[in-house]
Design a protein around this nucleic acid. Structure first.
Lengths: 229, 229, 229, 229
DNA sequence: TATGAATGAGGATTCATTCAT
DNA sequence: CATGAATGAATCCTCATTCAT
């Protein structure tokens, strides 16, 4: 509460070095390293339970020097979100999903890309669900905006699928959100999911989503219709 | 109310100092109050961001006296989990679910009960996902065991449904976990879910689960088979 | 600069204890002790050069416990100002200065009271000149408002003296400020002033102010006038 | 500009590492720039609140490189004092004050010169009052010695004035100190003095000092004496 | 039971200074 | 001369917990 009040500084340059426009490759590499290591620690121990000393130890960067690369502990979290959620936005364009004809294939591409994003199999998303409240409202908004964008892209695919009679969905917004949420099942319930390999899980998940959008059902329906002629 | 009367209530006393005296109704009422108030604070602000002083203020119990009722901050979290997840275990028996014939109806009853458990529309589950790693391994295990028990009950229903050709599910364990996980959609994605009333959400969720277990599909299949005769 | 941003919290209750309305005599005594000891340290070493540990050592109060009595280091400074400048305001009323006929006597009473205020012979005023910039604007304003009030009371005396042809002053505001400023001579130039006893200094100062307001001059003028008749 | 050329400029090199190389004109220019910029920052924000990074930013000299020109932050403060108080010493000689006949005119010249010294209207003196205790005793002494020298020169003027029956002063040391102190009124009470232009203030100040040394009084007295004849 | 005061380790962050290039 | 990275001690402050009453 008190500590909260102190923050909320708005997102100006992230650190001393950034302020002086030092965005050299080596600097960025260092910063990236910090973000990645911190990300792992936050996932494992929790944000509040991870001290800057822990991060210093994990990165091998002196605790004081850490602040040469990042502005605050809070900013690390923000950068983690930034780093792992920015690519989300671009999936749609990067994978040229809009050029794919079949909505089911569109959705599959999207889902697979989302799953594989952080390279950490969705563990980073866990942070968003778990620790987002440490961020000041303003930063949170920008993260959420990005997320909403992805959701709306999923929704777009769903709607297209409905128009083309491939999907059968009652509330596209609800379903888009649910699909996004389901992607984190592995991360959030690791203790029960560990039994599956990544491939097994991905396979099950995609089958699951297939049901959710009513894909199988529609195919059969079409088949039935045709055979009924 | 003499010291004699305070006894035999079931819950093991939390503070070892005065094991005999702390099981009276009034003691438990106080403790329950602490747990509830703390629960709300933890949900709103996060465990680490909530101080014992916050809890003292919220309960009106002096910060020193708080320790008469609970052993530590950590224990409060444990007790919250205990409080809100113990009933989960008993749903199956309490609602006499095993006596219900139709697997779909069994599942519906289970799901509805789980959703309504804390009275807080699933917000307490959020704590489990978010803050569980604060607890020492041992405590965590006992919580997880309980959770697993519920999962296996759901799995039981699914299996029954499959046997009776009402459900069509590839991996019952996966699906049971997924269903359990989906129940928390509202809590975890409040920022997008707020647009739905509780009734709307519950309705959508149940429809969703219906698809997931392949209920609709099977009905149609049976219909098709029959009409094919 | 950064540390600055963090502060500026507005002056709400000063500490945990105050918040819960614990303003017991013993509590206040403790707080007063802190303020006094800190005041001495600030005067001797400077605000920035005095650490909370120093204050803890000086007061015998544990560094953590210190924060039970005060909200922040900054607040200590504010309270020092508050403590030593509040009485300033009340001199006029307390000493019933307005009831004194002779403006010169009015002024003398005022000056003597101001000098003796902190009991520390003006050393506290030194802090105002030296360290006031650590306070956030808002707090500074309230201190300054008080100071201005005193200045305007002095100015009132000066004006009265002018009307009664006892003083001869060109710009009352300037002179009032100057008099106020001169009161701190001892504190600000201790290294040269130490040679004087308090009495000697006070005597010299009053003689000095007498000249400044043109008191002697007017008397002689009146004498001259009369003798010229 | 070879290494040879950099030499023989008077100021002892501040950084012992490269004593021979650091006395070139360009070096001194840079150092002077640092001192001036730092002076401004110290005045505005306070010594402790100004970081070496602030100074680096203000001067455009890299924070590491700064230490090529100055030995430490503390030294900057010392050099500021040195820079602005050395000229004080020389006023007496430079303005050939001893050649002025009339003590009042002598004093006026001295006062005006002192006011205008830093070009900053006395703001640098404020630093002396405010931050001098940062310096180690030894440095402080040398600064104070210089100051005392000025005071004694003022005192000399006062004594001469007394001998010549132009001034009427009880304690010349006290008054010399007071006059010196009064010169900083503007700087120390800026918040109230801002209303005056530099000219207005200077005028008021000189009138004030006139009274303090009893100049007007003496003139009248002489006039009275004469007219009494 | 209740209270308020005490404790002290630990948190994030800053900063003067140094060093290798 | 310049640079940017490194260092680590020191700073203010918080907080769970305990203790005496």
């Amino acid at each position: 509460m008190t500590r909260r009040e102190r923050q909320a500084t708005g997102r100006t340059p992230s650190c001393d070095a950034c302020a002086t426009a030092k965005t050299s490759a080596v600097f960025q590499k260092r910063q990236l390293n910090i973000i990645k290591k911190a990300s792992k620690l936050f996932i494992k121990k929790g944000y509040a339970q991870t001290s800057m000393r822990d991060i210093a130890k994990a990165t091998g960067i002196d605790v004081g020097n850490l602040y040469y690369f990042i502005k605050s502990k809070e900013e690390i979290l923000y950068l983690i979100f930034d780093m792992f959620h920015k690519p989300e936005e671009e999936i749609f364009e990067r994978c040229e999903i809009s050029k794919i004809e079949d909505p089911l294939e569109q959705l599959r591409t999207m889902v697979m890309e989302l799953i594989n994003l952080g390279g950490n199999f969705g563990l980073e998303i866990l942070l968003l669900y778990r620790e987002s409240r440490v961020l000041p409202r303003e930063n949170l908004k920008s993260i959420m905006a990005r997320e909403s964008h992805v959701i709306s892209q999923i929704e777009g695919i769903l709607k297209k699928g409905i128009r083309e009679k491939v999907f059968k969905i009652k509330d596209t917004s609800f379903t888009a959100n649910m699909i996004m949420y389901e992607l984190s099942l592995y991360a959030m319930r690791r203790w029960n999911m560990k039994r599956y390999t990544k491939e097994e899980f991905t396979d099950l998940l995609w089958k699951h989503i297939g049901k959710v959008v009513g894909a199988g059902e529609m195919k059969k329906a079409r088949f039935v219709k045709r055979s009924a002629k």
